[in-house]
Design a protein around this nucleic acid. Structure first.
Length: 268
DNA sequence: ACACTAACCTGCAAGC
DNA sequence: TGCTTGCAGGTTAGTG
């Protein structure tokens, strides 16, 4: 479900309900996520006030007076602010009730996400590349990092060391808009083409955020509303369908166990 | 350092 | 109808 635009959309949906509010009760119904939810977490956070909620890569950071919680949505996670009496769904693993009555629910069927506590730096955040929408991410970086690399460009731009927040959907879309085949070696792409790719990564992510993210199955923002970017997808999920630009049937291959759809005519 | 695979887990759709 | 298979938005740990 969540790539960077979906996480950003979630952040914007929940943040106004949480900032400056005090945590009344934290309930853990299923602690077995990607890593076990920190034991004793409820006692650590109840009574603390949330100073800020922010995003780094696809992580959400809930900053408290002392320490912070690091939340990742994995493949199937979502966060919603609901009315206190809202009926529990299967896979609602964690619930955080605020003193103002707002209730944040963490829902994650596949449990690839995480909800961790740290009083200092979270180790998951070290070694991450730049934010894709920041000036720290540019063509020069892609070009330099890719020299002599044989890895295909698609997994290269999906590598969190290269740049964060580019997942399978938006990597596929940005490569299509750039006319670059996903299987081309990263080291075999010119600075000029990386400039085009960089621009498209930024614009596709920005456009997806504006439209509230992509809803494939059940993604909803922090207020339960779907995203609309899936109507804009040109290649993701469209194998064997005609290219929106030239009509050639789109092809699919697997790179790093991820399906990669591209136009064999428009992308070289 | 790099390239590549398997693994974590549930739900759903397609195929038989 | 029911069973089996494969695939799904991410990331890490392990292999060679």
């Amino acid at each position: 479900m969540p790539e960077l635009p979906e996480v950003e959309t979630t952040l914007r949906g929940i943040e106004p309900w949480l900032t400056q509010q005090t945590i009344d009760k934290l309930t853990i119904r299923q602690a077995s996520l990607r890593w076990p939810v920190t034991s004793g977490l409820s006692n650590l956070v109840e009574g603390q006030t949330i100073l800020a909620v922010r995003r780094r890569a696809k992580y959400l950071i809930i900053q408290l007076e002392h320490g912070s919680m690091l939340v990742h949505l994995g493949m199937s996670g979502s966060l919603r602010v609901v009315e206190p009496e809202t009926e529990l769904r299967k896979h609602d693993h964690i619930e955080m009730r605020m003193r103002n009555g707002a209730v944040l629910r963490y829902h994650d069927p596949r449990r690839f996400g995480c909800w961790l506590w740290s009083e200092g730096e979270h180790r998951q955040l070290s070694g991450l590349g730049p934010e894709p929408l920041s000036t720290g991410f540019d063509a020069e970086r892609l070009y330099q990092l890719s020299r002599k690399r044989k890895v295909a460009v698609k997994p290269f731009i999906m590598d969190n060391n290269t740049v964060v927040g580019v997942g399978n959907i938006y990597a596929s879309e940005a490569l299509f808009r750039s006319g670059i085949r996903p299987g081309r070696s990263a080291g075999n792409i010119s600075l000029k083409r990386y400039q085009v790719l960089t621009d498209h990564i930024k614009t596709v992510l920005q456009a997806a955020i504006v439209q509230g993210g992509t809803t494939l199955r059940d993604f909803v923002n922090g207020n339960g509303e779907p995203g609309y970017f899936q109507q804009t997808l040109a290649v993701y999920g469209r194998a064997d369908q005609p290219c929106v630009s030239c009509g050639t049937l789109l092809k699919e291959l697997r790179l790093g166990q991820r399906s990669s759809v591209f136009c064999p005519r428009c992308q070289r």
